[in-house]
Amino acid sequence: MTGTAQADEAAAGFDPLRPMLLRLGYRMLGSVADAEDVVQEAFIRWMRSDRSEVREPEAFLRRTVTRLCLDQLKSARQRRETYVGPWLPEPIVEEEDEEDVTLPLMLALERLSPLERAAFLLHDVFGLSFDEVAATVGRDTAACRQLASRARAHVRDARPRYKLEKTRGLELAEAFYAASRSGDMSALGALLAADVSMHADGGGKRPAAPQPIIGFDHVMKVHKALAALFVKRHSTLVRTGFISGLPGFVTRESDGELQTTAFEIEDDRIVAIYVMRNPDKLKHLH
């Protein structure tokens, strides 16, 4: 077989695994761009490797991506210490909700050590045995069990307490858009829980609240002020859908930039609002 034919065969073997590797990279890093970079580096290493020695390509590539992510997480934590305002993961917009890892769970994963994060994702989300997890992260099986157990305790509260009917979630998102843009504060207030919180990530690139806004009265006050702005500066609804597993919508704001708004919902009330305004984290949506 010629070198070109071998390369074509290697690429053909990699391509079906790319979506899974991207999901793993995104869930490890919270960044679409970083996940794509990691997977591309894994592809380069795959093409350069002695593939005749690789018995399980999927395990080899998953291990490669995981270890590249662990290296990235060390520097990512340092960058986030100096991040301007609340940090949110890059939004993924889909027709259907991804139920394995939602935005609140992604935020909970941020509080874990890199190894805890890897053990939890590989075992609890991707379904690997602890022996496979151990081989992937380079720790023994017992240690990986402990890592996943500690992680599970930290993220337990981020799991949804009950399953939201998809259509109802989108209805609430559409109702929120209509009420917030029209200035119907009565309708907006009826959608919110008493302990609602609002988190906006502008990354220092666009105006956004520098701290989370907590409580019904404070969130309503912010949206009353925003409603007055929307009269002068129109936003356009691009689409509704699921934003990182939560019902929400994408808008194009008056500055021409995209924005995503996602809602955590319990007992038919919005308990958290997540707004992504940082243009660097929205590039992939274009």
Rank of each mutant, 00 (worst) to 15 (best):
A7R: 13
E9H: 11
G30Y: 10
S31W: 02
Q40A: 13
D50I: 09
R51T: 03
R51M: 12
S52Q: 07
E58S: 09
R63F: 05
R67C: 01
L68R: 07
C69V: 09
R80Q: 09
T82M: 12
P86Q: 08
W87K: 11
P91F: 03
E99T: 06
L105N: 15
L109R: 11
S129N: 11
F130E: 09
F130M: 04
E132F: 01
V133H: 12
V137S: 09
A148F: 15
A148C: 13
S149N: 13
R150S: 05
A153P: 04
R156S: 12
A158T: 09
K163H: 02
E165Y: 04
T167L: 15
L170A: 08
E174Q: 15
G189E: 04
L191G: 03
D201A: 10
G203I: 08
K205Y: 11
P207S: 10
I214F: 03
M220D: 01
L226G: 01
A227W: 00
A228E: 14
F230C: 00
S235Y: 04
V238W: 07
F242L: 12
G245E: 13
G248F: 09
G256D: 05
L258R: 09
L258W: 00
Q259E: 14
T261E: 15
A262F: 10
E264T: 10
E266C: 04
D268R: 06
V275R: 00
R277I: 01
L282G: 12
K283M: 05
H284S: 10
